[in-house]
């Protein structure tokens, strides 16, 4: 089911610790009760592609919301704000988790909400998604798209902002997880994806991992050479099938 009539706008919300934050929001018009999806952007920031993803979810019948994770670095164009965030080390995990929790609360009380919430993130946002699925209450399904450093092999990858590898929280994963990965990716590399999968199995979690040959990092991004149209199209189908299964009004969370 697709919805051509959608609305899209930047909205204000209170994020982590009550910080006055902002998010790009879109929802279908006249779709009845719909699930909510939090979209977590990648390190280059709250960019145009992220807003395209939010509108894509609205087109497919979801109320979607992408918080600006770099809002604490001040106002400006998203690229300029990301340029300030980078040398500062980016957003703290606690801030991101707080912002995601606030988005969930916002989506859950929308008049047309069906009560189900999904989270999806890309690249560093994939890592944030994994962490949220393990530590933030109220998530019914999560999609990690090539999130690097879920498993941390090099201690230099730890920082005050990212002091813990999300994999250590795996026992607390409380919703089904979909993983989308390219086999040519170096972060996460195939071995790290395999080890994450082994841990999910060991803990008896509900998950699906899909690995794509001929694809590397960010293969959804149609503005870069990394774009792989066939793999991208197939993976989006997997995403919507997964959310369709777990975020329908009648579905039950498959918490392990």
């Amino acid at each position: 089911m697709s919805y051509r009539a959608i609305e899209g706008e930047t909205i204000s919300f209170r994020g982590h610790d009550g910080f006055q934050s902002e998010a790009y929001f879109s929802r279908p018009l006249k779709a009845g009760r719909v699930p909510g999806v939090v979209v977590i952007h990648h390190m280059p920031g709250w960019d145009e592609w992220t807003t395209e993803v939010v509108r894509k979810f609205a087109h497919h019948g979801y109320a979607a919301m992408a918080p600006n994770l770099f809002v604490r670095f001040g106002p400006g164009e998203p690229d300029d704000v990301a340029a300030r965030a980078r040398p500062a080390g980016g957003a703290y995990d606690a801030e991101v988790m707080g912002d995601v929790a606030a988005c969930i609360a916002h989506l859950r009380v929308l008049p047309d909400a069906n009560g189900k919430i999904g989270v999806i993130g890309f690249c560093s946002g994939g890592r944030h998604t994994f962490l949220a699925a393990c530590t933030v209450p109220g998530i019914d399904a999560a999609v990690d798209c090539w999130g690097g450093r879920v498993i941390v092999d090099d201690p230099k990858d730890f920082s005050p902002q990212r002091a813990v590898a999300p994999i250590v929280h795996i026992a607390k994963l409380a919703c089904p997880l979909l993983g989308i990965f390219g086999n040519d990716d170096k972060n996460p590399n195939p071995d790290q994806v395999n080890r994450t999968e082994q841990e999910l199995k060991r803990h008896g979690k509900t998950f699906e991992f899909h690995r794509y040959d001929g694809a590397g990092h960010s293969f959804f991004d149609h503005g870069r050479p990394a774009y792989r149209p066939e793999q991208c199209a197939d993976a989006w189908q997997k995403v919507f099938a997964f959310f369709g299964k777990h975020l329908a009004a009648s579905s039950q969370s498959a918490a392990a």
């Binding site: 390190m43 280059p44 690229d79 690249c123 590397g216 990092h217 960010s218 870069r224």
Partner: peptide
Amino acid sequence: VYYDHPFHAPLD
């Protein structure tokens, strides 16, 4: 100075 995903240039 950094080497990462660009914002505007059509490069990986």
